[in-house]
């Protein structure tokens, strides 16, 4: 049915596009939230992703799963935005406001994840992005280097740093 939705959305069917949003918003928002470490930024980036998706949808040829393609698009939108603005000022996900991270709608036992989510959000930007892309999203260092615009060695170093910082934070 997802293929059918994509085909209909590609043909300009807004209802189908809205259904695509319903199906994929959670996955995209989770990615944006973890990459930005900021609830408000994540909402904006999620909207950016779907606005961009409407423009780019016709270029989707079905060479990969739609969800993978959208995921890649989302990563690019978030990272491009960061490169453009070069800012990371806000940190909504502070230790005092864990609900910003977890929302109130997870099926998973999130109380177990709150500390980890918070710790990820508190990582330095570069370390967090590499950690999210490598350890959570399954990208390789080569891909991350290309996406983020850093050397592969830097990606590995950032990952090492992120893991060390996370272990330290979670042991406190």
């Amino acid at each position: 049915m997802s293929d059918d939705l994509v085909a209909r959305a590609q043909a300009g069917d807004q209802t189908a596009f809205r259904e695509l949003y319903r199906q994929h918003a959670g996955r995209v928002y989770a990615l944006c939230l973890r990459l930005t470490g900021d609830g408000r930024d994540a909402e904006e980036r999620t909207q950016d992703v779907f606005v961009r998706l409407w423009d780019k949808l016709r270029s989707f040829r079905g060479d990969s799963a739609f969800s993978s393609w959208l995921h890649r698009l989302a990563v690019n939108v978030v990272l491009n935005e960061r490169r453009t603005t070069g800012r990371r000022e806000r940190r909504v996900m502070s230790a005092e406001d864990p609900d910003t991270v977890v929302g109130a709608q997870h099926a998973a036992p999130l109380h177990l994840n709150i500390d980890l989510e918070r710790a990820i959000a508190e990582l330095p930007d570069g370390a967090r992005e590499v950690f999210v892309l490598y350890d959570i999203e399954g990208y390789g260092h080569g891909e991350i280097a290309q996406l983020v615009g850093i050397a592969e060695g830097t990606s590995k170093a950032q990952l090492f740093r992120a893991r060390r910082l996370l272990r330290e934070k979670l042991e406190r």
């Binding site: 809205r18 949003y21 319903r22 918003a25 959670g26 996955r27 928002y29 989770a30 939230l33 609830g39 994540a42 909402e43 999620t46 909207q47 779907f50 910003t100 977890v102 929302g103 109130a104 709608q105 997870h106 099926a107 998973a108 999130l110 177990l112 994840n113 980890l116 989510e117 959570i136």
Partner: peptide
């Protein structure tokens, strides 16, 4: 590995 892959936005972004 136990982190949820999907997190619903706290409000409707549509």
């Amino acid at each position: 590995s136990r982190l949820p892959k999907s997190i619903e936005p706290p409000r409707d972004l549509w």
